[in-house]
Design a protein around this nucleic acid. Structure first.
Lengths: 221, 221
DNA sequence: CACATCTCTTGAACGCGTTCAACTATGGGC
DNA sequence: GCCCATAGTTGAACGCGTTCAAGAGATGTG
């Protein structure tokens, strides 16, 4: 089997790279060392990964998957919207916590718009969609009552908010990133309240304005 | 005078670099070419600038200043809050527009939390305070009526929102970055409306919740 | 004027990510 | 069993940002 051997080498390189990234940091880990540790030639790594940055995509995918797994139990039992959202966000931070010190470097790389690692890039689209799906589940599996038009947009908005939390977390230098935990604990009830308020008649015009804004901005022409 | 000669070389290197960045892009401009065009040795550029990315700081400072200058006329005349905010944001985009293509790279550098170029870093504090001051002026020089506690926090919140607009702009690949313009045109009236709504009795609890959240997150322990 | 000191300048050299022509191993077709 | 297209692998070589020992030039000191 050709495929099997290729996949094996690919995994070997990826696992070696991620281990070294964790042990010594991203910038300090050279492609030559990754190749040497994996027992292959430098060029071989480039046969499987377009660039050093692309290796990080593997890290993202794995954590993304761990995040999903960490939330399934909660999302199966809990019905309260706020509790679901809070659980999902804390789980997301839990999963990434061991990597906080070098997540900053990853973030720097991912921040470049042309980078394949950017959360908004085409290459990240599957991971992004999977992440948005979690937030759709958070909403749809809950007993929350809200404006039907907002319901359609909310999963993506929650994902955007989640990106904001991640951004905050990356910059968070407080011990154990407590501030991020406080942000989540404070923001979730607030979001819950605002979502409920979406059915209020007085706020109808403001809500429509928000939805119109989302629509006009989304059009990419 | 030594200082004069050094400063002259520094300016020569900076201007040459910015010109080349504009002409051929950031990644395509090598330090060797910058040095050659400026008529100095490569190492000389590193005597004045810590790295290639640090050359961007000069660009950043210059545009920051231009933004401030571009808003003074408007902020002296206009009294309507929405019009003031809209003008300031569009002016900010105007100033940066010619550099959109390599602003991405600048953003990448600024995004690293440990970077002195980060908008949240201590080194950027003066620039950040200056920027927040503009938004304070936007608010205080307007006739807007709003909750007094919100009034204290709003300038910083507007600045944060502005950072979000910049982030959107950096990623905006639509011709002439039209989507960013639409975002501003749509978001400003919305902010205006929400600010007005802050005096509404029904929303009092939600507002207090927002203010409490800001306070708890700001505590850095 | 000589000397010491500090500012400024040089360019070869280093290590990095990345490329690519050349090579080897594999498996299916006849 | 042989052949050949394809998958997989190699490592020297390239151009890049960056460093640094060495020196040149300007200024202060006796």
């Amino acid at each position: 089997m050709r495929r099997a051997r290729g996949e094996q080498t690919r995994q070997l390189i990826l696992e070696t790279a991620l281990r070294l990234f964790r042990e010594r940091g991203y910038a300090e880990t050279t492609m030559r060392v990754i190749a040497k540790e994996a027992g292959v030639a430098v060029g071989n790594a480039y046969y499987y990964f377009d660039s050093k940055e692309h290796l990080i995509q593997g890290f993202y995918d794995r954590n993304q998957n761990e995040h999903r797994l960490a939330t399934t139990a909660l999302l199966a039992d809990e019905k309260d919207f706020a509790a679901r959202l809070r659980g999902v966000m804390h789980a997301g931070i839990d999963v990434n916590e061991p990597y906080h010190s070098f997540a900053a470097t990853f973030f720097k790389t991912a921040a470049e718009p042309s980078s394949p690692l950017s959360p908004f890039s085409r290459e990240s689209s599957p991971a992004r969609d999977a992440s948005i799906a979690i937030f759709r589940d958070v909403l749809e599996g809950s007993t929350a009552k809200l404006d039907p038009e907002l319901r359609k947009e909310l999963p993506e908005l929650l994902w955007l908010g989640w990106m904001g939390v991640i951004l905050f977390w990356v910059y968070d230098k407080s011990p154990g990133q407590r501030r991020t935990r406080r942000l989540i604990d404070g923001a979730v009830p607030l979001i819950d309240r605002l979502v409920s308020l979406s059915r209020l008649r007085v706020l109808r015009p403001a809500l429509r304005q928000i939805l119109t804004l989302i629509d006009s901005v989304r059009r990419d022409d």
